[in-house]
């Protein structure tokens, strides 16, 4: 049995809309782009099929919300998402990747990330400013790799490759074996490897997930990051960055100590780490309910 995602995971914006916003950003009309975004989001919010994409999350996050409140929640969720995509576009085009950390502890953790000769895995989620935040890791002078699906022609993922700077190297997750081998090799070079801990690439076997409680239900989380850490001896840091006052801000950094030699054939050994990750995600969405961007029903 493998993980399959519904049609609703498809990208919201068409190439034309991306081209329009890109043109606005290149013409330094970001404020105007946000003004247009207001109406684009309103249009999407009125489409039942688009509202349906976040129904599962909103039902778990706001179980007592009535129909009107639900529509407002959908609007706020997509509005935040749209603004974060615009921020990402601006960062990709200008080549300025800034990551703000208000707590000195966060800076310390992140600056230490590249000092383990066995590398560091940064485990994040589709929350807040995940991609701009991870791009901001370039300031710590250790090469950064991100494991993600490299879909040809997908306009929203490649601003970091087409813009002025290339803050990270993308390891293509569409080859599951090759991508994890490449991730292991990068860790061996002492580099940073970023993985998403909340979503599995499509067609991943279900036995690569562990079940964990999340927002009153149960979700399946991938265990690849924990297996990598246990096999390679790399450090493992959980990192969540959120959009706060328009800035990609570190909200949570936590070191997870995974012992060496655990086998993925005993998934229970990895469950405590997945549970910790889910708890941390829960804390983020309790504080930033409109910054959770898994637009499908992830509950089992």
């Amino acid at each position: 049995m493998t993980v399959e995602y519904p049609e609703t995971m498809r990208n919201l914006g068409s190439k034309f809309r991306y081209a329009f916003f890109e043109c606005m950003v290149r013409c330094r009309l970001v404020v105007f782009a946000r003004f247009v975004l207001f109406f684009v989001v309103l249009y999407y919010t009125l489409l039942p099929r688009v509202r349906h994409r976040c129904t599962a999350y909103l039902a778990h996050r706001f179980p007592d919300a009535g129909p009107l409140h639900n529509i407002i929640n959908v609007y706020r969720l997509y509005w935040t998402f749209g603004n974060i995509l615009l921020d990402r576009m601006v960062a990709g085009i200008t080549g300025h990747f800034l990551l703000h950390a208000t707590a000195p502890y966060a800076y310390h953790c992140l600056s230490e990330a590249g000092k383990n000769p066995k590398g560091c895995i940064i485990l994040s989620a589709h929350i807040g400013t995940w991609q701009t935040g991870l791009a901001g890791l370039e300031q710590f002078d250790t090469p950064v790799n991100i494991v993600q699906m490299k879909t040809p022609g997908d306009p929203d993922k490649h601003y970091f490759e087409r813009g002025k700077g290339k803050p990270f190297h993308v390891i293509d997750a569409s080859d599951p074996v090759g991508s994890l081998v490449e991730a292991s090799a990068a860790l061996k070079r002492g580099e940073i490897v970023c993985l998403m801990g909340d979503r599995l690439p499509a067609h991943t076997p279900m036995h690569h997930c562990v079940k964990t409680p999340f927002l009153g239900g149960e979700i399946c989380l991938p265990m690849s990051a924990y297996v990598l850490a246990s096999s390679t001896g790399a450090d493992l840091l959980m990192l969540f960055t959120v959009r706060e006052k328009g800035l990609a801000t570190v909200w949570h950094v936590e070191h997870i100590d995974v012992p060496r030699g655990l086998s993925h054939r005993e998934p229970d050994a990895f469950r405590p780490y997945a549970v910790r990750f889910a708890r941390a995600m829960e804390a983020v969405v309790k504080n930033y309910p409109y910054q959770f961007f898994n637009f499908y029903d992830m509950w089992v």
Binding site: D172, D175, P176, V177, G178, S179, L180, V181, E182, A183, S184, A185, K188, T204, P205, H208, M223, S224, V227, L228, S231, T232, S263, H264
Partner: peptide
């Protein structure tokens, strides 16, 4: 599967001193 690959890379390197560096080599 892919998680076996992660463990196999470590085994090959530890036992035979041979690194598998990227997707192509894998």
């Amino acid at each position: 599967d892919s998680l076996d690959a992660v463990e196999l890379v470590v085994i090959v390197e530890k036992e035979f001193g041979v690194a598998i560096a990227d997707a192509e080599e894998a």
